[in-house]
Simulated assay, not measured.
Amino acid sequence: MPQLNPNPWLFIMAMSWLTFSLIFQPKTLSFTSTNPPINKTPTTTKNHPWTWPWS
């Protein structure tokens, strides 16, 4: 079966991942986010206990 022969496909997969990791990934990570996170103090929420009618 030709699908089990890893000779050409292993090289193609390795080269495509190497190309992605070295060329495309730094270019896409260099873009600035349109919605940068804001340093806000977290607000604490008050938890109200629920009274269950059957207990």
Rank of each mutant, 00 (worst) to 15 (best):
residue 1 M to K: 06
residue 1 M to Y: 03
residue 2 P to G: 10
residue 2 P to N: 13
residue 2 P to Q: 11
residue 2 P to E: 10
residue 3 Q to P: 00
residue 3 Q to W: 13
residue 4 L to Q: 09
residue 4 L to S: 14
residue 5 N to M: 07
residue 5 N to S: 07
residue 6 P to T: 11
residue 6 P to F: 07
residue 7 N to M: 05
residue 7 N to D: 12
residue 8 P to K: 01
residue 9 W to E: 12
residue 9 W to V: 14
residue 9 W to T: 15
residue 9 W to P: 00
residue 9 W to C: 08
residue 10 L to P: 01
residue 10 L to M: 11
residue 10 L to T: 15
residue 10 L to H: 12
residue 11 F to N: 06
residue 11 F to S: 14
residue 12 I to L: 13
residue 12 I to Y: 11
residue 12 I to D: 03
residue 12 I to P: 00
residue 13 M to N: 09
residue 13 M to G: 09
residue 13 M to F: 13
residue 13 M to R: 09
residue 14 A to L: 15
residue 15 M to F: 09
residue 15 M to C: 10
residue 16 S to G: 12
residue 16 S to I: 06
residue 17 W to Q: 14
residue 18 L to P: 00
residue 18 L to V: 12
residue 19 T to W: 07
residue 19 T to S: 11
residue 19 T to G: 15
residue 20 F to C: 05
residue 20 F to Q: 01
residue 21 S to L: 09
residue 22 L to G: 06
residue 23 I to C: 04
residue 24 F to W: 14
residue 24 F to D: 04
residue 25 Q to V: 06
residue 25 Q to Y: 07
residue 26 P to E: 05
residue 26 P to L: 02
residue 26 P to W: 01
residue 27 K to F: 13
residue 27 K to C: 04
residue 27 K to M: 10
residue 28 T to F: 15
residue 28 T to A: 09
residue 28 T to K: 02
residue 29 L to E: 13
residue 29 L to C: 05
residue 29 L to P: 00
residue 29 L to H: 04
residue 29 L to R: 12
residue 29 L to Q: 09
residue 30 S to Q: 12
residue 30 S to N: 08
residue 30 S to F: 03
residue 30 S to M: 06
residue 30 S to L: 08
residue 31 F to Y: 14
residue 32 T to G: 03
residue 32 T to I: 02
residue 32 T to D: 07
residue 33 S to N: 09
residue 33 S to A: 09
residue 34 T to L: 08
residue 34 T to Y: 04
residue 34 T to G: 02
residue 34 T to M: 03
residue 35 N to Q: 13
residue 35 N to K: 15
residue 36 P to A: 06
residue 36 P to V: 03
residue 36 P to S: 01
residue 36 P to M: 02
residue 37 P to E: 01
residue 37 P to W: 01
residue 37 P to C: 00
residue 37 P to S: 05
residue 38 I to A: 15
residue 39 N to F: 08
residue 39 N to K: 10
residue 39 N to V: 05
residue 40 K to N: 06
residue 40 K to G: 00
residue 40 K to V: 09
residue 41 T to I: 10
residue 41 T to M: 11
residue 41 T to L: 11
residue 41 T to A: 10
residue 42 P to V: 06
residue 42 P to W: 06
residue 43 T to A: 08
residue 45 T to A: 10
residue 47 N to M: 04
residue 47 N to Q: 05
residue 47 N to C: 02
residue 47 N to R: 08
residue 48 H to P: 00
residue 48 H to M: 01
residue 48 H to G: 00
residue 49 P to C: 02
residue 49 P to M: 05
residue 49 P to R: 10
residue 50 W to V: 14
residue 50 W to C: 02
residue 51 T to M: 05
residue 51 T to N: 08
residue 52 W to E: 12
residue 52 W to T: 05
residue 53 P to F: 07
residue 54 W to G: 02
residue 54 W to V: 03
